[in-house]
Amino acid sequence: MDAAMAPITSTPSTAMWRQWNLSQVRWWVWLILIAAADVLLFVAIARDELYTLIFGKVQQGIVLTLFVTLVAYFLALAIGLIVGLGRVSKNGIIYNLATLYVQIIRGVPILVQIFFVSFVATPAFFELLKAIGAALSGVLGPDNFLAQTSTQDVSLLARAVVALTVAYGGYEAETFRAGIESIGRGQMEAARSLGMSYFQAMRYVILPQAVRNVLPPLGNDFVSMLKDSSLVSVLGVRDITQEARLYVAASFRYPETYYMLAFMYLNMTIPLSMAVRWLEGRMGSGRRAA
C-alpha cells in the first residue's frame, strides 16, 4: 500500500509503525515456517526406524563439531584482534608482517591449509624442537624433553583446530581492521590529547566502538566456522560429517545419511543466522551517532 492510499488519519507515527510491522512479519513468517517444517521432519525421523538409526549414529559427532567450532572461533578472534591491530599499525615491520599473513591465508583454500598445518607445519615444528633438543643435549642431557617430543604427541583434532584458527584468524583480522577504520580520526586524537597512550586509546575508545560496528560480520563468521568445521573430517576427526561418512561407508545409505547431515547443519546455522540478523536490526535502529 503506498502513501497515497493510506487513510487520511494516518500520521507519521502510524506510517512508521506499518514499516516496522512489515519487516517484523516477514521475520516471524520465516521463523514459523522453518519451525513447522522442522517439527514435521523431527516427527518423521522419530517415526522412521532407519532415520532414527542414522540420527543416532551421526549425532555422536555433535559435541566434537561444537567443540571445534567454539575453540577455533574464539582463538581466531584473539589472533584476528592482534593481527587486525597490526594491519592498522604505523610501524612498517608490524604492518607488513600482518599484511603478509592475511594475504597468504586468504589466498590458500582452507582445506589445503588443514593439510598443510597437519602434515607439513606440525612435523616441521617437531623436527625443529628435536634439533634444538639435540643441540642442547650437552646441557640438558641426551634424553631431554625436547629430543623426546614427537609429531604423534599432537592429535589430529588439535591440528585441525590449529588449522581452522590460523585460517579464520586471517579473516577476522580484516573484520577488526574494517571496524577500527570505521571510527573517525577525531576519536583517536581526542583520546591521545587527553594523555592516553596509543593502546589505552585503542582499549577504551576505539575498540569498544569498532567491535560494536563489526558484531554482525563476526556473527556471520561464527556461522561460517560452524560449516567449515566439517572440513576436519578429512583428517578423520569424528565430527558429525565424519560420523556420517563412516556410516555411509558401512551401509551405502547415501541419500538418507546426507539428508540427515544437511538437516542437522541447517538446524544449527539457520537459528544462528537469524540471531545475527536480529542483532543487526537492533543495532541499526539503536545506533548512536558519533
Partner: peptide
C-alpha cells in the same frame, strides 16, 4: 612518547568537531 603523553596531560584541547566518545 613518554614526553608527549606527559605534556598532553597538561594541555587540554577542544576540537571543532567536539570528538566526544559516543559510547
Amino acid at each position: 612518547h613518554k614526553n608527549i603523553n606527559a605534556i598532553r596531560a597538561e594541555v587540554g584541547i577542544v576540537f571543532q568537531q567536539f570528538n566526544l566518545f559516543p559510547h
